[in-house]
Simulated assay, not measured.
Amino acid sequence: MNQQAWDITLEHLDGGYDDHLVLKDFSATIPAGAITTILGESGCGKTTLLRLLLGLNRPSAGRILMGGRDICRMSDTQFHKMRRRFGVLFQDGALISSLTLAENVALPLVEHTGLPRKTLRDAALRTLELVGLDKFADYYPGELSGGMRKRAGLARAIVTEPPVLFCDEPTSGLDPITAAQMDQLLLDMKACYPSMTTVVVTHDLGSMDHIAEHVLVLQNGKAAFSGTKEQLHASQNPYLRRFLDRKFEDSRRMAAPPLDSSVRQALAEWLDD
């Protein structure tokens, strides 16, 4: 699909859950047609930001511009049409266990088009071939490894050739070799679809170094860094250095043993019984 690349601009976002704000006056730009990785410690707001981008939550303040259109000001009907243009790779692949891989991959086309069955299957097979799974088209998700399920999830996410692809922890739970294969797959996919804007939420610094063209680091609900990975590695910001070098500010010492003597005695009697 030949289309103009979409950038994503976040302006003064406030977002969270009920009365708890996770993102506070958050602003950043995700460049068009690039792979952007979003990093940050647990609880910093990565998941909240992803949910806002996907429209699963609405911000309490601010704007989200995708391709110049403010999705926060759209009606539900308008946004549902916009969301058809998103591809989403969930952490576990989120495949439907009762459908074959080909049926899973074709599902977005089944839901949104009236194409003949053969056309749908051919589209699914071509997309599975991109991720190296065309020979497993008629297997069910439960018959495949976790890495293969993630690759199938990526195939389903890109079968509509979306202008924006969101990936939630694509390498989590994978061994190092399979994780590296997933990284390379994202790079290969980007070569096939150069105008696709790809947003990858990850904890994997190795993956970031391999695939990122742009990096966004969150800290306490704000953007601590936005730039290239080379600029990130050169930064002397104390938080970024601790994050990249995996260093603690302080050692955390236990104030007391976790179990008192009466609990230990009871456990000893139970184990000996």
Rank of each mutant, 00 (worst) to 15 (best):
D183G: 15
T127Q: 13
L130F: 12
L144G: 06
M182Y: 03
E143N: 11
Q184E: 15
I177W: 04
S145N: 08
G173P: 05
M148L: 07
R156Q: 14
R149H: 00
R156Y: 11
P170A: 11
R151K: 14
I158C: 01
G147T: 10
I158K: 02
P163Y: 05
M182Q: 11
L154E: 09
A180C: 03
S172G: 15
V131A: 04
A155M: 01
K150M: 05
I158M: 02
A152S: 12
F136R: 14
R151P: 03
G142Y: 02
D183S: 15
M182G: 05
P163K: 06
A180L: 13
V164Q: 08
Q181K: 14
L133H: 01
G153C: 10
A152E: 06
Q184D: 15
D134T: 07
G173Y: 05
T178I: 12
V131D: 04
I177C: 00
A137Q: 01
E129M: 06
V159P: 09
V164H: 07
T160W: 00
R149F: 01
T171V: 10
F136T: 00
G132L: 07
P176S: 10
F136H: 14
A137R: 04
Q184N: 15
P141H: 06
G142C: 11
K135F: 02
D175A: 11
Y139A: 15
P162D: 10
L130K: 15
L144M: 14
P162T: 12
L154G: 11
R156M: 13
